[in-house]
Design a protein around this nucleic acid. Structure first.
Lengths: 254, 254
DNA sequence: AGGGTTGTAAAGATCTTGAGAAGATCTGTC
DNA sequence: GACAGATCTTCTCAAGATCTTTACAACCCT
């Protein structure tokens, strides 16, 4: 959840900001009017605006903002107001109007409610496809491709490779993998993860021979990292945290 | 605009009702709790609820309603309440919460704001005809054509193909399809989507043999992509998602 | 060398989908 | 208001995919 707050009321900002921190929402405070284009660039879920900060042309701004970003949630949180003002604000494109002083929890709940609606429209954030080695992982198709042709992964296989690939080179333990792909705790002695890693390796090997993608870390788990089979490492910068025990590729021989 | 009001406060109902008449909104007053299914059948844009009327299990009702009709606007308009209650209501699925006594104009503006947000999701903008493979989808006529002659799709069939085609190659899960075509949440075990996909395939096959349009993604859902049956792919760019609404490659074949 | 880990394979269980068709519902007409 | 036709739902069955489990071999580390 990414939101921006256009306000200058330091007390309000402090209380609200603290709450947002705790929720882990990315947020940004804007002390004054910001060009609509800039707001567009921020890719926000919602904005909280105190119309008083914007002065008389706040109405204008509201309309422009709403028109430019029909998917953006707009919550006006401002001081005392008349019914006519609130109606005007809502008609201008605001999704909600809250009067200060207000409880931060209520503001958050209202922002959530507004964003909930919004989310439904542009479901599934169109993320750029992830590319690793020769394979390309496309979340929007639940499938991986090599040179444009499908690797024919099943649902579980796809979710597994997606998880591994998104771990960005870290080693993932079986428990964690299971938990995140299957959605519940792994029973002791369950070998499902191993079995699926094998299936994945098989399919990847067939589709992209000459590359190794999934590496075993004995006694720990698996790590995803595209690696040309001939030992050519695709310029992997030595990240700060050296993985437990085995830093580089073990069989770096050759 | 069709709305329902679940309330018993005659004064409020009278004032508000009169205002609605003047606006020309279809509306219906429900004096007590009504089964969620009945609400579904009413095909509403929004409901206004006084939680006090429903008693202690109003929260439950709110949740059920919101879950069954994710697209329905829900505005709670009720007497004095605490912040905690409002937060709970909003989290349960209410889109807005207004405290009585309230000005009817504000209530209307809020219902409008909520409905506006809702409508945004099923954006039915008038776009030029979409062409995919041999078929042409004309939103303005609620019909698809091949070589100028109608494919004779029923309403649901049309809405389904329109949705799939507009997804631009993405895989859509059954839940999402159902939600967007039928307008409410899919019951577990409902096979309607499958049945309609079959009907669509049948009609498309008859009208445009030699092409495959709807592809099954086992365990996930369906994906729309015109594809000549002989394996000729109509030049589908491997990476980067093609811009929406671009028939593009379609006529390449033939 | 030995105990615990992992790779491999295959059988069996489970879940999904395609297909047909009966039943329910809607719509317009008489 | 009853009727006929179209449309939508729901149900069942069977084929097919996928997932889970089990067994055993190969492997790693101490």
């Amino acid at each position: 959840m990414r939101i921006a707050i256009i306000d200058t009321d330091s007390g309000f900002l402090q209380v609200f900001g603290k709450r947002l921190e705790r929720l882990g929402w990315e947020h940004r405070v804007l002390a004054s009017e910001v060009p609509v284009d800039a707001i567009v660039a921020m890719r926000l879920s919602a904005v909280v605006i105190d119309l008083a900060v914007l002065g008389p042309h706040g109405w204008d701004y509201l309309e422009k903002l709403a028109a430019a970003l029909p998917g953006l949630g707009i919550v006006v949180c401002t001081g005392q107001s008349t019914v006519a003002q609130r109606v005007r604000g809502l008609r201008s494109g605001a999704d909600d109007w809250l009067t200060k002083p207000c409880h931060p929890e209520e503001l958050i709940a209202r922002v959530e409610a507004v964003a909930r609606r919004r989310r439904r429209s542009d479901t599934r954030t169109v993320e750029g496809p992830v590319v690793a080695g020769e394979i390309e992982i496309r979340t929007d198709r639940f499938q991986a491709y090599v040179a444009g042709s499908s690797v024919d992964l099943t649902r579980r296989e796809f979710e597994l490779i997606e998880l591994l690939a998104s771990a960005d080179g870290r080693v993932l333990e079986r428990e964690e993998i299971y938990q995140r792909v299957w959605g519940y705790a792994m029973a002791r002695g369950d070998r499902s993860v191993d079995v699926f890693v094998r299936k994945l390796r098989q399919k990847l090997e067939k589709a992209s021979p000459g590359w190794r993608y999934i590496h075993t870390h004995f006694g720990v788990g698996y790590r995803f990292a595209p690696e040309a089979a001939d030992g050519e490492l695709p310029a992997e910068p030595p990240v700060a945290n050296a993985p437990v025990g085995k830093p580089a590729a073990a069989p770096a021989a050759v």
